[in-house]
Design a protein around this nucleic acid. Structure first.
Lengths: 228, 228
DNA sequence: TTTTTTCCCGACTAATCAGTCGATTACCTG
DNA sequence: CAGGTAATCGACTGATTAGTCGGGAAAAAA
């Protein structure tokens, strides 16, 4: 049955993925190690061959989750040139995570948030993990903005505030996603995001002396499929 | 010692407040009923005279928390006439919750979020609680905007989008607050919020044909004291 | 075949904790 | 003062669960 030598990395990843689903669905506290073992198709003892503690499994699940997200967004951006489309795509991929069909990852991000913030949360001692994620996201967004400026699509004055812009937009995306999850059917996240994008792009493109108004953009790029 | 007849409402509130501090500090799961009892200065058995379950204590703590926030914001707004100042005050009070000196309430809001979203979270069956909170906040913000329009400070075209505007701004406030909490010292929340406010107010005030630019507002109203 | 190595497992342990219950105290009333 | 009642308490119970450990199975080596 079991081969003499097992690819430990691969098996760890397999377990981490099984754990990710459970953590996202039920939360860290409500997910027992036994359940993870069952979901991964191994015994509880085996699980402890590959991870020291439950928290380690959690961290591995987070890493797995981030990897998937980053892959998705980089793949989407890879073949897009137009700065406007790049910006819209970035926002679309980010908000697609809370699509009602698959709210798991969004719930999971709450779980991470909590264990990062709460004093004896599983991640309190490893807060840098989330900081690194956000820094990575911000860099991508900043580069989109600066690229747009260099291509003459956005006005150059915004270069000075690229970082502030990126931080704010990321904050908005997360916040509106959370509110959406909490009060489903109360508003339409696509419309809300499109509204913001219109205003933001209107701002980014307007030049002093130009009449200002929300950008009249098409929202085709606001739909993105996230592969699990 | 104990009087023959006790004001049950008052004692419940007393316990709820003690619980609020603990829940905010350590989270729902990590706070034991025993600890709540000790913090409230009563025995564990007594506590169950006033609440049926641990979850009921949690809900009571949430209600207590919301009441405090609403009192603060209404008190602040009560004596302000100028729409711009009202808007800035609203944002200031909302973000003051994540002041590094007292991040408890922000952590608590994460806790609520989680138990609202996770399937067997303590609040999953009572999701409407959070929805109601947000509706209340949104109404306040909308009224500020409409009032500003009627006073000629904001351009009337925005009336149509008052609701979208309010939902987006509330989402932004929560999102930027969360990011701030997660990566302390990485950015300055006051500057970020001021930046957004400048742009938002610039948008709200600009008229078609006007040269567009961020509003040159003073940020005095961005500091607010939250009383515990 | 026999031995060794690697991997797998689930019963067990020790600790935690939500909720119960019977005993006790303190106040009130007659 | 005495009987009754409201309020308090914390030891106990039952259930859950993170992490351990020793036995066993399969593959490789000898």
């Amino acid at each position: 049955m079991s081969p003499k030598f097992v690819d430990r990395k691969e098996k760890q990843q397999h377990i981490a993925r099984a754990a990710l689903k459970l953590f996202a669905l039920k939360g860290f506290a409500a997910t027992s190690v036994e359940q993870i073992a069952t979901a991964a198709g191994v015994g509880k003892g085996t699980l402890y061959e590959y991870f020291e503690t439950k928290t380690d499994i959690f961290v591995a699940a987070i890493v797995e989750w981030m990897k998937q997200f980053e892959n998705t967004i980089m793949a989407e951006l890879a073949h897009i040139e137009d700065p406007l489309t790049r910006l819209k795509t970035f926002v679309a991929v980010s908000t697609a995570l809370v699509d009602p069909i698959d709210p798991l990852t969004a719930r999971f991000s709450i779980e991470i948030l909590q264990h990062t913030l709460i004093e004896d949360g599983a991640l309190y001692e490893r807060r840098h993990v989330m900081k690194d994620v956000h820094t990575g996201m911000r860099k991508i967004l900043e580069s989109i903005l600066l690229d747009g400026i260099s291509k003459g699509v956005f006005r150059p004055e915004w270069a000075r505030d690229a970082e502030k812009f990126a931080i704010n937009l990321l904050g908005y995306i997360d916040g509106i996603s959370l509110h959406y999850l909490m009060s489903q059917n109360y508003f339409h996240i696509r419309e809300q995001v499109a509204f913001t994008l219109q205003n933001v792009i209107g701002m980014l493109r307007s030049k002093p002396g130009d009449p200002w108004g929300p950008a009249d953009i098409d929202n085709d790029r606001l739909t993105v499929e996230i592969k699990n």
